[in-house]
C-alpha cells in the first residue's frame, strides 16, 4: 500500500477527574485513548467501532485536534499536526472536517442554511461574493437539496435534511478528510441508507477519505473498507471488513459480530457478560479479561501486545501470541 494519509502513533488521551472526596489519595484518570495507533489511506472509509465509552469519538476529535492529546503524534500526509502553530492549524482545518451525530444539535438554530454554508468560506476568506454563492449552490445540489432550502432555518428541516446540510457545510471547503462521528446513528433506517449512499457518491466525486465512527456494525460493514474495534481506549482488532466480518479473531469482536441477527444462518450468539468496566479503574492485564469467555490466567496480569496476523490484520489478544497448547477452549 501507498504511504498512509493519516497516521496515529501511540496516541494517549487522558482525562483527569477531580478527587471525589478529600479521602481519595489521588485524582483518578480516565484513559479515553490508551496508546492508539493506526493508519488511514487516501480514499478509503475507515470504520471505528466500539461501545459507548470506548473512546472512539475522542479518537475522532483528537485527530482533528479539537481535543489535545496527552501524548503521541498524529501525522497528516507526513506532517505532525500535534506540533502545528495556531496559524498552521487554521489553514489545515480547511482540509479536515467533522459531521456530528445529532443533526438537531449540529446546526445553529438561529441561522439560516445559507448563513451556515457561507460561514466556512467567510472564515477562510475564500473567493468573492459571486464565487461563494456559486460554491454554495453547487454544494447544496451535491447533497441532494435545492435552493429553496437556503432561506430556511434548521428547525424547519427534517433530521435527514439537517444531516445533509451538516454534510454540505463540511463540503464547502473542499476537504480531503471527513470524520463522521455517529453521523447516521440518530436517523431512521431508510434515511440512514440515503445518507450512506450520498456519502459514497461524494467520496467518489471528491476523492474523500472518511473516518466513520459508529456503534452500528451493520452500517459499518456496509460502508467501510477497513474496521478497527475499540475497547476501553485501545484497539483490539483491526483489519479489512471482509476479514473481520467473516472471521473475527478477538473474543470481543467475535461476540460483537455474533450479535448481528442473520436471516439465513442459524448462528450461535456469544453473550457478553457484565458491563464495560469503570474506565477510571480499568482491569489489569488485558482490559477485556473481566468479560472474556476465553480468558486465561495470564490475561489477568499480562497486557497483550499488538500481534500482526498478516499484513494489514492485527489483533491484541493472548490467544494468538502464545503457543497453541496454552489456549483454552
Amino acid at each position: 500500500m501507498s504511504a498512509p494519509f493519516i497516521e496515529l502513533h501511540n496516541v494517549h488521551k487522558h482525562y483527569k477527574q477531580n478527587r471525589r472526596s478529600i479521602f481519595d489519595d489521588q485524582p483518578s484518570v480516565v484513559k479515553a485513548m490508551n496508546g492508539v495507533s493506526f493508519s488511514l489511506y487516501e480514499g478509503e472509509s475507515f470504520g471505528l467501532v466500539g461501545e459507548s465509552g470506548s473512546g472512539k469519538s475522542t479518537t475522532g476529535q483528537v485527530i482533528l485536534q479539537l481535543l489535545k492529546q496527552t501524548s503521541g503524534s498524529i501525522y497528516y500526509q507526513g506532517t505532525d499536526v500535534t506540533t502545528f502553530t495556531k496559524q498552521q492549524l487554521k489553514s489545515w482545518r480547511k482540509k479536515v472536517q467533522i459531521v456530528f451525530q445529532d443533526p438537531y444539535a449540529s446546526l445553529n438554530p438561529k441561522k439560516t442554511i445559507e448563513w451556515i454554508l457561507h460561514e466556512p468560506l467567510e472564515i477562510h476568506h475564500i473567493g468573492d461574493k459571486a464565487s461563494r454563492e456559486e460554491k454554495i449552490l453547487e454544494t447544496i445540489h451535491d447533497v441532494g437539496l435545492d435552493t429553496s432550502f437556503l432561506d430556511r432555518f434548521p428547525h424547519e428541516l427534517s433530521g435527514g435534511q439537517r444531516q445533509r446540510v451538516a454534510i454540505a457545510s463540511a463540503l464547502v471547503l473542499d476537504p480531503e478528510f471527513i470524520v463522521i462521528d455517529e453521523g447516521v446513528s440518530a436517523l431512521d433506517v431508510s434515511v440512514q441508507a440515503q445518507i450512506l449512499n450520498l456519502l459514497t457518491k461524494l467520496q467518489k466525486k471528491y476523492n474523500l477519505t472518511y473516518l466513520f465512527i459508529s456503534h452500528d456494525l451493520n452500517v459499518v460493514q456496509y460502508f467501510c473498507d477497513r474496521i478497527a474495534i475499540m475497547y476501553l481506549g485501545e484497539i483490539v482488532e483491526l483489519g479489512s471488513t471482509e476479514d473481520i466480518g467473516t472471521n473475527p479473531k478477538h473474543p470481543y469482536a467475535e461476540a460483537l459480530f455474533s450479535a448481528i441477527p442473520h436471516l439465513d444462518v442459524d448462528e450461535e450468539r456469544i453473550p457478553l457478560a457484565g458491563e464495560l468496566p469503570d474506565p477510571s479503574n480499568p482491569p489489569t492485564g488485558c482490559p477485556f479479561h473481566t468479560r472474556c469467555a476465553k480468558a486465561m490466567d495470564s490475561c489477568k496480569s499480562v497486557k497483550p501486545v499488538v500481534h500482526t496476523m498478516r499484513a494489514g490484520y492485527q489483533v491484541t489478544c493472548h490467544l494468538y501470541t502464545q503457543e497453541p497448547e496454552h489456549q483454552t477452549s
Binding site: Q61, L64, L66, L89, K90, S91, R93, K94, V96, Q97, I98, F100, Q101, D102, A105, S106, L107, N108, E119, P120, I123, H124, A166, S169, A170, L173
Partner: peptide
C-alpha cells in the same frame, strides 16, 4: 459544548466569531 459550536471550531472559527 453544543455540536454546532464544535463544528464551527473544526472549520477554523476564532473565539470572537
Amino acid at each position: 459544548t453544543y455540536d454546532f459550536v464544535k463544528a464551527s471550531v473544526a472549520k477554523g472559527a476564532g473565539a470572537l466569531r
